[in-house]
Structures are given as structure tokens and as C-alpha cells.
Amino acid sequence: MVHLERYRDIVPDFESFVESIHRPLPVTVRINTLKTDRDDLLRRLSEEGVRYRFVYWNPLCLRIDLEKPGNLIECLMGYLHVQEEISMVSAVVLDPRPGESVLDLCAAPGSKTTQISQMMENRGSVVANEPAVNRIPSLRSNCERLGAMNVAVTRYDGRLFPRHRFDRVLIDAPCTGQGMARKDPSVLSRWCLKRSLGIQRLQQSLLRRGVELTRPGGTIVYSTCTFAPEENEAVVSTVLDRVWVETVSVPGLKNMPGLTRWDSDYGDELEGCARTGPLFTLRQEASSDYGDELEGCARYYPHQNDTGGFFVAKLIKK
């Protein structure tokens, strides 16, 4: 777990954190209220002898006692959607309302898109953008299966998304995915600082464009499934002149505050990376000040809620 060592000073109860990474992730599903209602669905599952548990913070999320819930007829019918519990936080924090105009800038495969659509009760409009042509089919098929009729799919480079004013924008950015380690342990061994710094530039551009596309007073949510501050607070800190940071707090879900600064021995950490490419000369400073506002962001660690790892920032456009 050498790759998690860098988080020893910021993660509470570090040993349990490391230990939790080795445990399999609970299998969770989201009830899709566009096609069914909660009581009907729960009755159906009980009749069929499917065992499940509720989670405190989200009445539409179930931890389900099945290895492959995707083979449930209720999933095929679009009454349920298999989605990791902690990834349901982004849309909850975005808090879209029926009738609004919402952009999901990095949408495939559409779990959060369809969750947004369901929170909007299929009213208003959700633009689901996905630049990768090979990821469009999964996005489309999830929207169709779940009956998300207010979703329209675009395929722009998110950094160059055409000018418009949305009420809310979600940037669930591509990241190094350390928070997914319980599902795929190889994400940890593949991680190196250079990867985080390499993807940081894309994340900054996506967030900057997302902020530009939001109307003044509108909400921007930036989320990733990684622990690396380079991809989280460091990215958010670049737009502080244009947004206010609103404190993220989801009742029933434990989180740690965002980091206001990060000390890291970049010299040492870069040792682990191949010494090629322009990034290597980029920066080697030992610490970064992100600003006190960043405390309002939320860090979710696997051992605190028995979920994957996640980062969420809620920003209000000035």
C-alpha cells in the first residue's frame, strides 16, 4: 500500500483506511423513480426474496445482497440501476430542480446523468456531453433503459463546449480513480504523481469551462473518485476568483473537509515515475496553499461510510 502512504497525515484512522481498501465494495443500486416508485419496487424485491439493506443518507439507494444485480429483471426493465453508493453524492449535492437547464459535462456512462434526470422528474433539460464516441452507446442505452426523456446527448470536447448559460453544471472529471481501489486494486499500483499532474491540466480546463457555462448564481459541482489533492483541491483552487465555495455536508454521510494546503515531497514522489516527457520539469515545490475556502469541499474515505473514495466541491458562480 505504498501508494496510499502519502495520505497518512490527512486520513483519520489511517490503518483502518488501508485495511478497508482490501475489503470488497458493497453492491448498491439506485431506485429509478422515472419508471417505478420506491414502495412498489421494495415490495417486488421482497416478494422475490432479494435481500437488501437501506443506507441512512439516501432513501433511493439500496445495498443489495447479490453479486450481479445487473441480471435482476428489475435492472433490465430500468426500475433499478447499478451504481456505486458514493457516486450518488455528486447529483445530490448538485441538487437539480424540475424545469431547470442542467449540463453534465463528462456524462458517460450516464449514471449521474440519469440520476439528475430523475431528480428533475423528467422536466426541464439535461444536456449529457461525452466526447468519446465509443462511450456514447453506454450513455444512450442507460438513458433509454431508465426512461430519461429530458436528456439530450452532445459530443463536444468539454473544454470547448459552446457558449450557453446553464442553471447547474456537473463536472465529474476523468481522474486517476484511486477511490475505486476496492473494485479494481490495480488503480493503486498504476498511480504515480505524474499521472495526477498530467490529468490535472484537463481537469482545470473542464472546470474552467464549466464555470463559464454557468449563469451567475448558478451551481457548479466538481467531483472525482480519487484521493490525490492534485486532482481535487488544486483544481478547484484555480477558479476561486469566479466562484464561492459552498460547504458540502450530506446528512448521514461522514466526510472530511477539503484540504487548505498540501505538503508533498514531489522530488521523492516523482522518483516512481518514468523520467520522460515535459511534465517532469513542471514543478517540484514542496507545498501548496489552496486557500481556506477549500475546507468546504468534502472528502469521502472508504472506511468512514463503507463506500468507495470520492471528492466533491460545490461552487456558486459569482
Partner: peptide, 19 residues
Amino acid sequence: WISSSAEPPDLRYETIGVR
């Protein structure tokens, strides 16, 4: 295609709504 979105923004779309 059927869509419940009254007026989606003026953009170049792959798809709008559900087939």
C-alpha cells in the same frame, strides 16, 4: 425520438430523448 425537454439549448445533438 420522444423528448420531455421543452426547449433544449441550441446545440449540435447526437440524440434528443428516447428512441
